[in-house]
Amino acid sequence: MSFSADLGSSPIVTITGCVIVAIRDDLDDSAVMTLQNQLVDEIARKNAHGVIIDISALEIVDTFTGRMLAAMAEMSKVLNARTILVGMRPAVAMTLVELGMTLSEIETALNADKAMMMISAERDRARRE
């Protein structure tokens, strides 16, 4: 495990090839962009195969942040890493749906634990084959 970056207080941590980002409470637009850049760097540098984005601290996800999350998942995919979005609050989920933003292209899980299991299960399967 290694701490690679600490942006404000949104830490990016890599554990056994899986990048975990815990987004801190309310980022302004430029912080979101910086985070995106750092995440992509981290994936490439650590040759990570999985990305977990934890948004449990977020009370607000507007269309801008939603689009950034979708873009992060898309970029990770290009770098051959599977992205799972975890910890979305009920109020945030309902609001995004009302905005018409269902983020159907991003995988989701309840929490980082479950996402970690999903990613390592897939990796084990890949190894066996």
Partner: peptide
């Protein structure tokens, strides 16, 4: 409540942007 807060503040965010 959480839902009232999230809905309203999200709308504020969209309109301000």
């Amino acid at each position: 409540s959480a839902i009232v807060k999230t809905r309203f503040v999200t709308a504020v965010s969209e309109i301000a942007r």
